[in-house]
Design a protein around this nucleic acid. Structure first.
Length: 247
DNA sequence: GCGACAG
DNA sequence: ATCTTGTCGC
């Protein structure tokens, strides 16, 4: 798996950067699955709890009825502090842990963060995509690298002579959509547009992952929920049983 | 040297 | 990402 080695302290940032360049070399940016056949999509996001550190949530959405059909959570301490450009080494391990149980059911994964719209074309969505060998899409709320270029009245991010992301304006906010791996930019955009709702700031998969991870982080800190509970029962069962249900 | 900088 | 009350506005 391409998921990062656990790096400590001041350890060689140069090696992480080299690793990203190697990932980018092997990157596949072609569609590997017809758009029409896509029905189940996973979403990944994380929040931070003071006590339990990283709280990652993976969601599973059915594009047909646009509903949340499953969710999974993973708790863990990030191996690294946040460094722009190296987010994957901080969050990808816990993302993968949360995603794993849902992996066989989904055809595409939407990640909170960039794909190839990244200084080395290896954002967190690319890391995840190369690791699971499935199409991934990065959706970020702000730009990390590159310059804005307008083509036919549409805004894109250009980087190293390539259009790496499209800027979607949704509810007065910009969303940077970029392919992670195994998908083209145009297909990625079509899928994300299909997952946007007028009353939600993010595409459904990451919207629910965002909402749930923040909620769980808060409940964990308030000790309303025990970490043990999250491991023993499936998150979806808890959501169905509790008043936490906002879906 | 200076500015930029996902979450 | 997170620390955080009231407050402005639909």
């Amino acid at each position: 798996m391409v998921l990062p080695p656990l790096v400590k302290g001041s350890l060689q940032i140069g090696k992480l950067i080299l690793l990203q360049k190697q990932i980018a070399c092997k990157l596949v940016l072609k569609d590997v699955i017809p758009l029409d056949s896509i029905r189940f999509v996973c979403g990944l996001d994380a929040a931070y709890s003071r006590i339990y550190k990283g709280v990652a949530v993976a969601t599973l959405i059915d594009i047909h009825n646009r509903k949340l059909i499953d969710a999974n959570v993973a708790l863990g301490t990030p191996p690294l502090q946040y460094i722009p450009g190296l987010l994957a080494f901080r969050e990808a391990p816990i993302f993968y842990t949360a995603l794993r149980p849902l992996l066989h059911q989904c055809q595409v994964v939407v990640v909170d963060g960039h794909g190839i719209s990244h200084p080395r074309k290896a954002g967190i969505a690319t890391h995840i995509g190369m690791a699971i060998k499935k199409p991934t899409i990065g959706v970020a709320k702000s730009k990390l690298a590159g310059t804005i270029k307008v083509v036919d009245g549409e805004k894109y991010v250009e980087l190293q002579g390539q259009l790496v992301a499209k800027v979607l304006v949704h509810r007065n906010n910009e969303l940077y959509v970029s392919p992670g791996a195994y998908i083209t930019l145009s297909s990625a955009v079509k899928i994300i547009e299909r997952l946007l709702e007028p009353d939600k700031s993010l595409p459904l998969p990451t919207y629910y992952a965002d909402t749930l991870s923040k909620m769980l982080a808060r409940k964990l800190d308030k000790r309303v929920i025990e970490p043990k509970t999250l491991k023993q029962h499936k998150l979806m069962d808890i959501l169905r049983r509790t008043e936490l249900l906002l879906i």
